[in-house]
């Protein structure tokens, strides 16, 4: 059995009358790449902040690398990129990375950390003169310079352009190929789809789904039926057998159906003008919306 890296049992956290994390159980094993997904307010950041020891849970058990978050941090075994982690503007990228590396017992060579984060050419630039995406890469370098075995990323690619996001995940993948554990929260479902091997879906502070991407998709009891058709009011489609929702995107009519065969037959029968049919499984976004009851 793989070693448990993070173990959470009946974890709870409230802010006044607002419950952010509501009895959450989660076990993460070494080497897993886990995406934490959920609508705003689902408790993603609260969960990660408790794992990092920045927030104390109201109740429940929490163990990180077999001890407290503080011990894991002090020993340099856990590194993190925070959503609201600020940087100081007056120092250069290289100076910052060197100072951070000195805090860790077995840090990577600073030049390696800068190269991985794509910062080698920005080494002598002051942090205050970097773009938002470049600053995010500095946070990435700071998280990895200590060579931790557990990495926590909270919305790591916010502020990056498409290319920057792709580079980030490419580097993160090769960086952690050696068996490091990664937990990340994201709004970009495509990132979870291409990088995570496990998805934990949160809603209202609870785990509503947990498994591989395929498992998550299979939890959704409908398929997508599409066709091209000019129609003034798409809501009449709701009367077709099996249809649970109907919408249009340009000329395309997109239906969610619990019985795609029956839907398709009725559609062909009733609307002879319809053409270019497509029937398929849901994508992660549809699964996400369905499983969190459309709160995305």
């Amino acid at each position: 059995m793989a070693e448990t890296v993070i173990s959470l049992t009946d974890l709870r956290k409230s802010y006044g009358s607002v419950t952010a994390v509501d009895g959450l159980d989660l076990r993460i094993e070494r080497g897993q790449k886990v995406a934490i997904l959920g609508p705003n307010g689902a408790g993603k950041s609260t969960l990660l902040n408790m794992v990092l020891g920045l927030l104390a849970p109201d109740s429940g058990e929490l163990s990180v690398l077999g001890g407290s978050p503080k011990t894991a941090l002090t020993k340099g075994r856990m590194g993190a990129m925070l959503q609201d982690g600020g940087l100081v503007d007056e120092v250069t990228v290289g100076e910052m990375a060197r100072a951070m590396a000195a805090l860790y017992p077995k840090a990577r060579p600073v030049e390696d950390a800068l190269a991985i984060a794509g910062l080698s050419e920005l080494r002598d630039r002051r942090v205050g003169r970097l773009s938002g995406g470049q600053k995010q890469r500095v946070r990435f370098a700071m998280a990895l310079v200590g060579d931790p075995e557990l990495l926590i990323f909270d919305e790591p690619t916010v502020g990056m352009d498409v290319e920057g996001r792709r580079d980030f995940w490419k580097e993160a993948s090769s960086l952690t190929a050696g068996g490091d554990t990664v937990i990340f929260a994201t709004h970009y479902l495509a990132e979870a789809d291409s990088y995570a091997d496990r998805v934990v879906l949160l809603a209202k502070g609870r785990v509503v789904a947990d498994g591989s991407i395929a498992t998550i998709k299979s939890l959704v009891p409908f398929k997508v039926v599409e066709c091209t058709l000019s129609i003034a009011d798409v809501s009449v489609m709701n009367d077709l057998p099996g249809v649970t929702s109907a919408r249009t995107r340009g000329e395309r009519v997109i239906l969610h159906s619990t019985d795609s065969d029956a839907t398709l037959r009725a559609l062909m029968d009733k609307y002879p003008d319809a053409h270019e049919f497509e029937v398929g499984g849901v994508d992660l976004e549809d699964a996400f919306v369905a499983l969190t009851h459309g709160e995305g």
Binding site: L52, L54, L73, T74, K75, G76, M78, G79, A80, L82, D84, G85, G86, L87, V88, M100, L103, Y104, P105, R139, M142, A143, G146, I152
Partner: peptide, 17 residues
């Protein structure tokens, strides 16, 4: 100022006490 810009939070997830 450093608390407001979040620098202390960044440091809080390093081994620095």
């Amino acid at each position: 100022l450093e608390r407001q810009i979040g620098w202390t939070r960044t440091l809080a997830v390093t081994p620095l006490a």
